[in-house]
């Protein structure tokens, strides 16, 4: 009974707080980016102003189904995070995340705009690039803890990080793709790259675009939750290290974003798969070996 209460508290806290924390992180990101480029940069609350503005705009859609797909994307992203923070099965979480991305891609395809379609194709390639590493991360947690359940992993006595260092580095690598940062911001990006206009979200405007932005904040917090999971060992200092490493990982992604130009999709797939093979599978073998002796 007690378990259910904490579960509900965590889910509600995630659903309420994640957009605020995510938006704040996005604002800090833009400020740091500006400072790295020698600019003053927008106010920290700028992402909230942007979304507020988008919700004030006149609704224009290419076709009716598009809005439906975006709504599904939004709901499934929320479900992904909710499942994760409820402590449910990691595989369920990953597959829900995949379904969410599929809705966004189908929505972009349905618009028939060449920019959105190229963006959608690139998003598919990106999914192919990061998916193996995400699955290996879940498998790594399973081999280490004997369970796919997040609630079981959180309360382990040992810190998963020490056994899963390779997988951790690999996961941070694919975070660049998931956060839509250069060099892997192929399908859409936060900056004004003119090559593909806005890629995936070219045809979305107003409220729909605002929803995608909020979903992105939810998704970022959920992904940082994954990073946090590596440092859980059932004690408060483990949680503290987890939060600090989450912030450090976020800063690292901002730094990478500002130091690279956009690369071709071939580089994204090749590098992500090589990382998954070497660091991910290599780590799994070593872990299995360590647990046997």
């Amino acid at each position: 009974m007690n378990g259910y209460v904490t579960m509900i508290i965590f889910v509600v806290a995630y659903l309420v707080l994640a957009p605020f924390v995510g938006g704040l992180l996005a604002g800090i990101d833009r400020k740091i980016t500006a400072r790295m480029q020698g600019r003053v940069g927008p106010p920290i609350l700028q992402p909230f102003y942007d979304v507020g503005k988008l919700f004030e705009k006149e609704p224009i859609t290419v076709n009716k189904v598009q809005d439906f797909y975006v709504l599904c994307f939004f709901i499934f992203i929320l479900a992904t995070g909710a499942f994760f923070f409820a402590g449910l099965n990691l595989l369920l979480v990953i597959f829900t995340l995949t379904i969410a991305s599929v809705f966004l891609i189908v929505g972009a395809f349905s618009s028939n705009s060449p920019y959105a379609q190229v963006g959608a194709e690139r998003e598919l390639l990106q999914m192919m690039a990061y998916e193996p590493m995400v699955l290996l991360t879940a498998i790594g947690f399973y081999i280490f803890s004997g369970s796919f359940d997040v609630s079981a992993i959180v309360n382990l006595s040992g810190m998963p990080f020490f056994y899963l260092i390779g997988i951790f580095v690999g996961f941070v690598f694919i975070l660049t793709i998931k956060f839509r940062k250069s060099p892997f911001d192929l399908s859409m990006s936060h900056h004004a790259h003119q090559e593909l206009v806005k890629g995936l979200v070219t045809e979305y405007s107003g409220k729909t675009l605002g929803l995608i932005e909020i979903a992105h904040w939810y998704e970022n917090i959920f992904l940082l939750g994954f990073v946090f999971l590596f440092f859980c060992n059932g004690t408060w200092w483990g949680y503290l290290i987890g939060v600090v490493v989450c912030l450090a990982a976020y800063f690292l992604e901002v730094l990478i974003d500002n130091s690279f130009a956009r690369m071709k999709w071939q580089v994204a797939i090749n590098s992500a798969w090589i990382v998954a093979l070497c660091l991910g599978i290599g780590n799994l073998f070593i872990l299995k070996f360590l647990l046997m002796v």
Partner: peptide
Amino acid sequence: TPMYDVERFGIINTGNPKHAD
């Protein structure tokens, strides 16, 4: 550019009429 930096006012160059104000 950093000299004038209009992003201070939240101004972004979008290159997309559907996102522009």
